[in-house]
Amino acid sequence: MVEKLLEVKNLYTHFFTEQGVIPSVNGVSFSVNKGEIVGIVGESGCGKSVTSLSILQLIDKPGKIVNGEVLFNGEDLIKLNEKQIKKIRGNRISMIFQEPLTSLNPVFTVGNQISEAIRIHQKVNKQQAKDKAIEMLRKVGIPNPEKQYYSFPHLLSGGMRQRVMIAMALSCNPELLIADEPTTALDVTIQAQILSLMKNLIEELQTSIIIITHDLGVVAEMVDRVVVMYGGEIVEQASVYDLFENPRHPYTQGLLKSTPKVHELEYELESIDGNVPSPDNMPTGCKFHPRCPFAMDKCKEEDPSLLSVGNDSAIKCWLYQDRKVVQV
């Protein structure tokens, strides 16, 4: 029996702006098992980042989690107060972001920032924290870590900064790491370095990971299970092999078909018609229906629900609703 580390249940995060309520995340449920890497894929505005921020209660006003549970080892993180959640952030669940330069404080050395992070959560003295920080810097492949400990963030390249972020995120041996587009801002050769580094560290530290990305290549390379989001909702969930071999949702199919392939020479790239909907103006019924090649009348009016189709897979589409399936 696999142990569930994180379970997000029926999460709704809305933004209450002057223009009205923007439902960025609308009833999202998924789970992360111990030692598992889960990928959340989707395009801009699909709610993948807001979902990850909601897990750690990092939603600022006018945003608010209006409903749902985020069970971490059985404990609901949403019910925790600010002090309690701070003990979890950066300690048992850490996060790395897309742009490492803005996530690091420019006026402190990288070493300083890592050992600070360690000292917040662990009872160690300054020297121990420093030793640990240097060890982490070495682990993430930063050359000459004793010297780089005293570097300021702006003196490092983008790849090195992301390594520092990873070192900081993993310094307290978190049980869960949330990586929000960790390689999007990096060049492809550096991305390959960081991905392989992450893979090795995960194996070593047994950390569970949620990777948020728009890049299906990164998903195929890294994750065990995939959650596909569209318009603030999960439209499909499956194991990575299952998803790429047998994509069920028309959106997933379209996404796979419209991804340019590096390992094929002559092929026709298909695209999904229409535009990515913006969260403040979602279509009625199934959110994907205006772009869906299989759209039926029913799709325009009624929103299908996410149904399990066995094999740890689930799908939210009228094409699959008539099967004998169980609701998630």
């Binding site: 390249s157 050769t189 390959a192 290549g217 195929a220 390379e221 092999y241 790429f244 071999e245 590096v262």
Partner: peptide, 27 residues
């Protein structure tokens, strides 16, 4: 070679089967 093999392939079956030339270091 390194540039091409650094691109993640959107097919999990090829995950560990492709030969890789990892380019080390930064520019």
């Amino acid at each position: 070679k390194g540039l091409i093999s650094a691109v993640p392939i959107p097919d999990p079956k090829l995950r560990d089967k492709t030969e890789r030339v990892i380019i080390e270091n930064d520019i």
